[in-house]
Design a protein around this nucleic acid. Structure first.
Lengths: 175, 175
DNA sequence: GGAATTCCGGACCATTGCAGTCCTAAGTGT
DNA sequence: ACACTTAGGACTGCAATGGTCCGGAATTCC
C-alpha cells in the first residue's frame, strides 16, 4: 500500500512534488562558491576567477559535468569566463543581483509546471483542460518565489547572519 | 545556442523550471470533474459517482492510465470507489477540503525540490552542500502554496466567479 | 444464478530525460 | 613551446514517465 513506488516514504517529514535537477543544484552551489570567494578575496569581477576544477573539488561534484554547467551559465551571461593559466569563472554581476530563478532557467531551460501548457501557450487537450489557468498562477508564484532569492542569500559570508528575512520575498497567490 | 534541448523556447512568455507530471495533471482534472458533477447533480458523496471511463472520455485522457491514477487516489483516501454497474469514484471529502498538495503528493509521491535532500533528510554530499537549507525553505513555501488551493477553486461552478482571491493563499519566505 | 459493469492491481514495454564520461579543439598566460 | 583552462560535440547507462494489457474480484441488474 505504501510501497507504490521505488520510494519508501513512510519516514518523511518534509516533502514536495516538484523537482530540481541535479545540474541546477550544482549550478547554484557553484555560484554560491564564487560569491563567497569574491567576498573572501575582496576582489571583484574577473579578478576572483575560480576554475571549474577547483569548484568541483570543493563540493565533490563530477568535474566534467560541472564544467558543462558553468559553460552554459557563461553562455547565458550569468558568469564571465576566462581561459588560460589563472583563468576560470566569476560572477558576471554582483551576488545580490543574480537570483535563483535565472540560474535554474539558464540550466534546465524553462519547464512548465503543468504539461498542459506547451511552447505556444496552447493546451495539449485543446479546450478540454480547464485546470490550466489556476496552475499558471501557481507557476508564476513559484517563479516569483525563486526570483526573490539571490545568490548572496545562499552564501555564508563571515560577518553575516546565516538566516536573514528576505525583503521582497513575499508572494501572494490569487486564483 | 538556443537549441540546447529538444525545446525551442524562443517564443516563450511564461516559464518555470518545475514540472508536474502528467499523471498529477490528470488527477487534478479528474477531481475537478468530480467536484463539478457533485455540484451539478446536487448529490454528494458516493451518490454522485462517476466511472473512470466517463472521466477519461470527458477529457480525452487514456482510460487505462486514468484508471490507475484514480485507483491510487482512492487508495490514498482522497476518493471513494464503488464497483458495480453504476459504480465509480466520488470525492471522499467536500471539494473545499481537498487541496492540490495532497493530490499531487498522492500521485507522484513526495519529491524533493533539491536532489540534495534524501529520504533520511541527509545530504548526498554530506556537509559539502551548503545550499540545502535555503532550498528547503523554498520547498516548504511551494508546499504551502499548493496546500492553499483546493479542488473547489479549480471547479467552475455555475454561480461562482471564475477568479476568486483565495484567503490563506499568502505565503512568505524567509531565508 | 448469470451477465454486464466497474474497480483492483500486477506485469510489461517504449520513449525520454538526466547524469555522467570522453575526446578534440581553441584561447590564454608564462 | 608548453601548461592550463574554457568550449562544445558525441556518446553511454540508467531510471522515470507515460502508456498498455491482462486476469481477477466486487457489485448490480435481470
Amino acid at each position: 500500500m505504501v510501497r507504490n513506488s521505488r520510494w519508501d516514504f513512510r519516514f518523511l517529514a518534509t516533502e514536495t512534488m516538484l523537482r530540481l535537477t541535479k545540474k541546477a543544484d550544482y549550478g547554484l552551489m557553484a555560484l554560491k562558491y564564487l560569491a563567497e570567494q569574491a567576498l573572501a578575496t575582496g576582489k571583484t569581477g574577473a579578478a576572483s576567477a575560480q576554475s571549474a576544477k577547483d569548484i568541483a573539488e570543493a563540493y565533490h561534484i563530477p568535474p566534467q559535468l560541472l564544467a558543462k554547467i558553468l559553460q552554459t551559465l557563461a553562455r547565458q551571461g550569468l558568469l564571465v569566463s576566462h581561459a588560460g593559466t589563472h583563468g576560470g569563472y566569476a560572477l558576471a554581476r554582483p551576488a545580490t543581483e543574480i537570483n535563483a530563478f535565472e540560474v535554474i532557467r539558464a540550466i534546465d531551460g524553462p519547464l512548465f509546471i503543468t504539461s498542459c501548457i506547451t511552447i505556444h501557450g496552447t493546451c495539449d487537450l485543446a479546450g478540454h483542460c480547464t485546470i490550466k489557468e489556476p496552475l499558471r498562477k501557481v507557476n508564476d508564484s513559484i517563479k516569483d518565489l525563486l526570483a526573490g532569492i539571490v545568490i548572496a542569500d545562499l552564501a555564508e559570508t563571515p560577518d553575516h547572519e546565516p538566516s536573514v528575512t528576505l525583503a521582497g520575498g513575499l508572494v501572494s497567490i490569487a486564483l
